[in-house]
Amino acid sequence: MRKLAITALAATGVAFGGAAMAQDQDYTIGVSIPAATHGWTGGVVFHAEQAAQTLEEGYPGLNVIVQTSPDAPSQASAIEDLAAQGIDALVVLPFNSDELTGPVGALAGRNPDLFVTVVDRGLSDPSIQDLYVAGDNPGFGRVAAEYFVERLEDGAQVVVLRGIPTVIDDERNESFRAALDGSGIEIVDSQYANWNRDDAFRVMQDFLSKHDRIDAVWASDDDMALGVIEAIRQAEREDIQFVVGGAGMKQMVQRVMEGDPMIPVDVSYPPGMIATAMAVTAGSFYSQAPVRGTYVLDAELITQENAERFYFEDSPF
């Protein structure tokens, strides 16, 4: 089903290109995203601004307004402000599902013609949205686990660092555990490290004191992986074969590209999904291709062979 979604996306992309010339009506797309408060959202802001520029160049008459907000209440206000500017479509990556369902729903209720695209974190009421673009959280855990199964032998011991207690983190972890089931690989420890480098360093130091043998680490995030690597290096332990992070941070993708044995792979959870959402939304105005529905982007295994595709020189993330 995901494959299908991606193919459909590619097809619509072609269709938009062809149709762009034919129509020169003016449209405005409002984009509301969280401000860059950590690496991943920094990437979202970068890709949103890039996409705004390329889309405006590609579709004459299209106007894209990107608004960043530091928290959920100000995002609700920002969406009101965008609506006041007469937007035809709203692309929103909500801070959290519950708080923003109300404001977006009210807006959509007042403007039945408004095209609503929701990204990453779904609204509590999916009927509001015309289009939903998201990463694959269960897949994020599963893809990592499949690599562990491929690399490690029966009886291998791994430790897991978790993010911040959230639905996203739960989904990733459950599918990681489920995919390891029956492989003989044992998760000997698991702790929250808040998607934070310093916390990951601390937790990993303690894991290293506690366990004589650790074969591999699922850091489940690139920031945490960096803290983990530093702790392993200090302990001068030879038993750890590799560390798998996640998200696709620039520095980590680079290490995968360079063939760092400690970071053989990474798992994508691209902040660029905002650009996907914006492109499809813009396309909905300039082509007859059907776009309404759900697009789930694959969690892909980033390897030395394909790493180049995930590396963005100018991105802060």
Binding site: A36, G39, T41, G42, V45, F46, D223, M249, K250, Q251
Partner: peptide
């Protein structure tokens, strides 16, 4: 946050 553009200063 501004200096790091939301990313990391390394």
């Amino acid at each position: 946050v501004f200096l790091a553009a939301g990313g990391t200063i390394t």
